[in-house]
Amino acid sequence: MTTETTQNGNGRSTLLDVRGLVKYFPIKRGFFRRTVGTVKAVDDVSFDIQAGETLSLVGESGCGKSTTARSIIRAYEPTAGEILFNTEEGDTIDLAQLSLIEMRPIRRQMQMIFQDPFSSLNPRMNIYEIISEPLLVHGIGTSSEREDRVAELLRLVRLRPEYMRRYPHAFSGGQRQRIGIARALALNPRLILADEPVSGLDVSVQAQVINLMMDLQDSLGLTYLFVSHDLSVVKQISNRVVVMYVGRIAEIGTPEELFDSPKHPYTAALMSSVPKPHPSQRTKRYVLEGEVANPANPPTGCYFHPRCPFATDQCKVEVPPLVKSKDGRYVSCHRADEIELTTE
């Protein structure tokens, strides 16, 4: 994306600007672990995140959502691209160029929340130890200051500070996810990368966690990169949504734009596959033919062309660039301006 997005209409400033991010995984085979191919997990992805907003990544399993998030926080080594982060001090740093040691102070400003609240908490540590660990690692505070901070964090995620000495098994899934959030907040991060944070939870407690995340965002000015395959949750929590298909971006827009007037044929197919919430809305189901392309052996041209009802000869050979349309939306489709799409 270009620098013109640095300032958007809401007076927000860009926190993170991802440009041309690429992450390939080698496919190794045989006794000598020879590289026999590459999985193009993330293949030229560009988007920006404005301070204070929730930007979501959606798309089918394997489209590269987690890999994008993990590359940003440098859990994966990006193959190419820039990850421009505007630090608290006002500097713009390309995270892709930093050594892991240089990355360490930046990590304080970025934290990750994971899907599985059961396996992401160490069962042998009590809640105080779990939440205060990042403080300890960064050498912050005395032990009594850390205890005060943990109590404050527990109150923030609506758990009782008295629970501090209990172990994870004594908590329900929703409570464990809130403990995970408290831990992520310990260092006062600015950016939270949440990878499927409510997918493992009972549906009746998902709303508790979503509401908590929205409240914390408002009160602490947090910015979220939210990864989910649940489009209803994404619609609820997001300011903007990035639709990915086989490691590339199909479209970026607000939830309303994407759900009500998609511009990319894949967005339209995805949205119309979501079950309608009331039986009176049953219509003839739009069924996308075929299967998701293999990122180790993607098709030529537009990756979506083998399944796209609008594909032309151009689509088979030319990769459509992600371009800003007249109304300020980003779409990568050769025919975005001439086709009419609905999500009915």
């Binding site: 549906v203 998902q206 979503i210 509401n211 949750v233 619609k235 609820q236 939830p255």
Partner: peptide, 12 residues
């Protein structure tokens, strides 16, 4: 309590 396609963006 469960979001659906009826749910608005940023709705509690």
């Amino acid at each position: 309590s469960i979001p659906s396609m009826f749910t608005l963006s940023r709705e509690r």
